[in-house]
Simulated scan of single mutants.
Amino acid sequence: MTSHGPRDGSLALDSSGRDGRQGRATASGGPDTGPGRRPGRTGRLRGLVPGLAVCAVAAALAIGISSLAPALSPLLVAIILGAVLVNVWRLPGSWQPGLAFSSRTLLRAGIALLGLQLLLSDILDLGWGVIATVVAVVCIGIVSTLVIGSMLGISPAQRLLIACGFSICGAAAVAAADGVAEAEEEETVTAVALVVLFGTLMIPVIPLLSAALGLGPVDSGVWAGASIHEVAQVVAAGSALGGTALGVAVVVKLARVLLLAPVIIGIGISMRRRATDTPDQTRPPLVPLFIIAFLACVGLRSVGVVPEVVLDVAKVAQTALLAAAMFGLGTGVRFATLRAVGPRPFVLAAIATVIVTGVALVGVQLL
């Protein structure tokens, strides 16, 4: 996760002992190598172990809770576990390297494996009307959120993360955008927290509104898949709508996920152009490596060369990696920080939710 620290320097060392500017352990308990000394490779790997072990336990716990309550996404449970833990207990500094690695590297690996869930033929079978609706949701959602966020005075990185998270695929899109945008740590965790909050609220709302509007199973499934933020949240809402709606909703949602790649590539190109205009600014990669891996996974799945047993294992691994990463991100969700950002990101998130939901409903009505 890209992190450039607080603008005023007041949060340089947060309550968990993490260096807010770099996300590294400090003298409060982490493996500080001291000035002029650099740890060897073995030492760096050893420093990751405590945090990675905690993330692994948290991921297993989140998956276990989700298996007992299928309506709860393991990603959602993992974020909540991390947020609760960091707000009730001072985390040891020795955990911080592993937590940072999980919320950055493991998350990107999970996003790459997400490509194995996408079968291009399934998406094309939706028909051009549904595909056009998905493209409209993503494009209008991102552009309108960026414009309204600017009017609200929200920072460019913050509004970009919210735009991607709410228009594409939730926390995974936030993290993917963070890989190429110059977002501060509190901006990223705020966007993730907003995705969790508003996406969870959508789980009962879409089925209730679908019934009130008299939508059939297919139309309600398209609406759910085109409007709800997280894949797991779509599954929860689709389950409430029935088996037919659930199948449609998941495929429509995966069509939105597929648009993650071109959006992130576009952001990367834009950021590189800005960096060229500012010589002292670091240029982000044109196409992040994890997006290349994501597209490769989509291609492998679509040509049918991946055995079913490998797909099953990859799905479990993807869930575990993303749950571990969400726990790491959750440990950055400090209530004091969320209060400090003020109401404007929450207002933007609410508006983005309404826009995405409205565009999706218009698309359904035009099908």
Rank of each mutant, 00 (worst) to 15 (best):
I148A: 05
L68A: 13
G165F: 01
M151A: 14
A69Y: 01
S121E: 12
A109K: 11
V180K: 03
T145H: 07
A191R: 04
C139M: 12
D122P: 07
L91Y: 04
G179W: 06
S102A: 15
P74G: 01
C164G: 15
V174A: 08
I80Q: 07
R108A: 10
A78T: 00
A112E: 04
L113K: 02
A83C: 06
V86A: 14
I154N: 11
C169T: 13
S150M: 14
S94P: 05
R108C: 06
I154H: 13
M151R: 11
P156R: 09
L116Y: 02
R108L: 10
G170E: 07
A173D: 04
A181V: 15
S150K: 15
A78W: 00
I154M: 12
S155V: 08
A163T: 06
E187D: 12
L68G: 02
R90N: 14
A172F: 03
V137A: 10
V135A: 12
L116F: 10
G127N: 09
A69L: 10
V174W: 04
L81G: 02
A173Q: 06
L126N: 07
S121A: 14
A83F: 03
L118T: 13
A177P: 03
L120P: 06
M151F: 08
A163F: 05
V189H: 10
E182T: 14
G153R: 13
A172E: 04
P97R: 12
L114F: 11
L126M: 11
S103T: 12
S144F: 08
S144N: 02
Q158M: 15
V143E: 09
L99R: 02
A132D: 06
L160Q: 10
T190Q: 09
Q117T: 15
S103K: 14
G110H: 01
A175F: 04
D178N: 15
V147E: 14
R104I: 11
A191M: 04
A71V: 10
L106F: 03
G93T: 04
Q96R: 13
A109M: 13
E182M: 13
L120R: 03
L119N: 14
L116A: 06
A183Y: 00
R159G: 03
G141H: 01
